[in-house]
Amino acid sequence: MFEKKYADFWKEQVRGVSGQRLEMLQRDLTGTKKLLEGVLLPVFGSFEELSLEYELVSLSGTKIYGDVCHPQLRLVFEEDHYVTHAEKITRDRFSFERARARSVAVLGYTYFPYSRDELEKKPEFCQRNLYELIGRIGGVEKSGLYHLPVYERELMRFAILRNKPFQLPVACEWLQLKREACRKIIKNLELKDMLYPLGGGSVRCHEFMITEKGASLLYQRT
């Protein structure tokens, strides 16, 4: 079952991709598969919000790649094999890896590496680590969301975790409010550049999507 899901996921990832990222996707991804099978799929339940060989631009201006990324949660996951990342690594490569990790942090992502040995011998422990991280990210007490009015905060939290467009009836379900009340909340968030409309005309739209500014509130600490 996993092999079929992974094959479909990989095909979707390479569709329309070219250049260096395509080369990265076509290399041996055995370690990445172990990461997906042992930790990420059990925790997230699907590959829907994950991206393989996620491309970022480092502080030096070069392209760097994360084994797997959850863009909306700003998490970069790595599988590190001891032989290739420690035992036989050169000094230059060691320095590059440290600079790469710093770039990921400056860009606002959490770098979350696992060793191959952990993935093979202690997958449940690895899963618990990720659950703990998600739990901390999901807390709003010290995040930028905390300063929003309560209904706006809750709508934004649902929208961040959903990571796809949503319609007004869905927002009503989330907040347990009537359509007109939800419409006003969404309008306020649009004015704050937290949501943007998709489809429809100048008066009504069909769906709403969270903006980059809105998503960043979950990771901003106050």
Rank of each mutant, 00 (worst) to 15 (best):
E120R: 09
H85V: 05
Q127L: 01
E55F: 01
T110M: 04
V76F: 01
E53A: 04
E141H: 01
I137Y: 01
I64M: 10
E118K: 10
E79W: 00
S51V: 11
L145M: 06
I89Q: 04
F94S: 11
E79I: 07
L56I: 00
Y65K: 04
R98I: 15
E87V: 05
P123A: 11
F94E: 11
G61E: 09
I137N: 04
R136N: 14
F94T: 02
T84C: 05
I64D: 13
R153Y: 05
E132N: 14
F94R: 11
R100F: 02
F96M: 09
S95G: 00
I134K: 03
T84I: 02
G144Y: 02
E87K: 05
N129L: 14
R153D: 13
A86S: 13
L145Y: 03
L107N: 12
A101Q: 14
G135C: 04
S60R: 12
F125S: 14
H147V: 09
D117R: 15
S58H: 02
P123Q: 08
Y131S: 10
C69W: 03
R116W: 00
V104I: 13
T110L: 12
E141K: 04
G66A: 10
Y109D: 09
E141L: 03
L59G: 14
C126V: 05
S95C: 09
F125E: 15
Q72R: 10
P113W: 04
S51K: 15
E124D: 14
G108K: 06
D117G: 13
F77M: 07
Q127P: 05
R100M: 08
S95Y: 14
F94D: 08
R93E: 14
H147G: 12
Y146W: 09
E141P: 00
A105Y: 03
T90S: 08
N129D: 13
P71F: 02
E79D: 14
R153M: 10
R100P: 09
V76G: 06
Y114A: 09
S58C: 05
H85R: 00
Y109I: 05
S95I: 13
K63N: 14
A99K: 12
L133C: 07
F77D: 04
F94I: 05
K88S: 08
G66W: 07
L56D: 12
A101S: 15
L148S: 08
G144P: 05
I137L: 08
I134Q: 06
C69F: 03
S143Y: 00
K121C: 06
L107P: 10
Y82N: 10
Y109G: 07
H70V: 02
G139T: 06
L52T: 02
L59R: 11
Y65M: 05
K142W: 06
T110P: 00
V106T: 12
S103I: 01
